[in-house]
Nucleic acid binder design. Structure first.
Lengths: 150, 150
DNA sequence: ACGCACTTGCAAATTAATTGCATTTGCGTT
DNA sequence: AACGCAAATGCAATTAATTTGCAAGTGCGT
């Protein structure tokens, strides 16, 4: 994702361009895991020339969310809300409860199920979220070597 | 769920009995949807003789969660964490985005999928959460009568 | 370069959640 | 049934996340 592409997305979404919006948008595009407002802020202020305020981060995330560019993840990381780019390809995550690593998983196992749910409940199903938690291969090795029970 | 049953659960979980714990436990058992600490507090103080403090509510929810009686739902309702009784039968929810109603759905569509995910990723899968959002039949009728697009 | 609406920074306010400490309560023992 | 102690609660104050008001700054069309 480069600057011109970002400007394009902004224009199409009716979002006025600004440096701060650009930076947050690029950062979110380079992450493939949910990130908190505070972490975005910390990443941006450690970047060389770049300055930004935490309230601006919140405001921009709110704007992006309202415009559908960003999803407010239902995954709260110790009390902080997290956000991620709205990959329209409908992505879920696999989260390691040991090291906190989050990896996107491809495909969605719920298409068929939702159809049956519609029949059963008469709800108009619009969206869902799914997070799966477990222990990644690396952390499993560490656990084995320390002989910790689950 | 009556008082003696609750006392039994407490004893088996190593939880000392108290009025406040009882009330929160009974309330959670009568809800079948996630509820925030604040809403629990509000429901309890409007009850006749009953008084409780919001910090006590948080402390008891923390205790119940630690002991596995209660699950901290990943569903945050405008910025507030929510909690629900740990039905060990592994329940998911269907949420109406119009009226906010939450109904539990029976069965879980992910058993088979998790098995395939284990093979593919070598993760040790421990748990997952799934929330499905849509519009309930009643709200659909209201929308139709008002002719609102989605 | 100019002007105006929109955005940002800053500081203060709000709200959720936590904590320290004095008081109260549950419960086993006498 | 009263006693005593550890644990639980209430209260007030604190911390931490998020929001908001307002003055100053910026993007963008003219």
């Amino acid at each position: 994702m480069d600057i011109n592409k970002a400007k394009d997305v902004f224009r199409r979404s009716g979002i006025k361009f600004s440096q701060q919006r650009l930076q947050i948008f690029l950062l979110l595009n380079n992450k493939n895991e949910p990130i908190s407002a505070d972490d975005i802020y910390l990443e941006l202020i450690k970047g060389e020339s770049n300055n930004i305020n935490i309230s601006t981060v919140y405001r921009i995330l709110g704007l992006f969310t309202k415009k559908g560019l960003v999803l407010k993840s239902n995954l709260n990381i110790d009390g902080k809300a997290t956000f991620e780019i709205n990959h329209r390809d409908h992505r879920h995550h696999l989260i390691c409860i040991q090291c906190g690593k989050i990896v996107p998983i491809s495909g969605c196992p719920l298409k068929e199920y939702e159809r049956s749910l519609i029949k059963k409940t008469n709800y108009l199903i619009l969206e869902h979220n799914l997070e799966i938690r477990g222990i990644c291969p690396e952390c499993q090795k560490i656990r084995e070597s320390k002989d910790i029970g689950i």
